[in-house]
Computed example of a mutant assay.
Amino acid sequence: MTHPRVYAPPSTTTEALAQIDAWLGSPSLVTIGEADNHWETLRALLEAGKVAGPMVHDARIAALCIAHGVRELWTVDRDFSRFPGLVTRNPLQG
C-alpha cells in the first residue's frame, strides 16, 4: 500500500496502519501463525520450488496457508504458483 513504485499514489503510513487496524477489528478475522509442522512444510516448499533469496518469504507465506488449510490464496503475485499444494487466484482478473 505504501510502495511508490507499486501504487500511484501510495498510501501514507497513517492510512496503511488505519486499514490494518480496521481489518484486525473485524469480528470475522482469523489470524494464522506457525503451526507445529511449520518447518517441515516450509522445508518441503523450499526444496520443491528451488527457492532462495527473497522468495523464501513467499515460501513462508505459502507454508502458513497450507498448514492452516487455506483453500485459495488471492494474490496478484504470480510467484506463488511455484508452490505445490497452494491454489492461487488473481482477484483482479475475471
Rank of each mutant, 00 (worst) to 15 (best):
A22M: 08
P84M: 02
P9Y: 01
E40L: 13
G33Q: 06
W23H: 12
A8R: 10
S26R: 08
S26Q: 07
P4Y: 04
R43K: 14
P4I: 05
L92R: 14
W39D: 08
E72Q: 13
G85R: 08
G69F: 03
A62Y: 02
H68K: 07
A52E: 13
G25R: 03
L45C: 00
R89E: 05
S11R: 13
F83K: 01
A52W: 13
W39A: 10
A18V: 03
I61F: 04
A62D: 01
E47L: 15
H38T: 05
R43A: 14
T2V: 11
F83S: 00
T14N: 03
D36Y: 09
R60Y: 07
G49R: 02
T12R: 10
I20D: 05
Q19G: 14
G69N: 05
T75G: 00
T75P: 01
I20H: 03
V87H: 15
P54D: 14
V30P: 01
Y7K: 12
G33M: 04
A16R: 02
A48Y: 00
S11M: 10
G49D: 06
L92A: 12
V6G: 01
E34T: 10
L64P: 03
R78M: 12
H57G: 09
P10V: 00
Y7D: 10
A22C: 08
I20G: 04
L73Q: 02
G33A: 14
D79T: 10
L86E: 02
A35V: 11
P84C: 03
A8H: 11
L17K: 04
P4M: 05
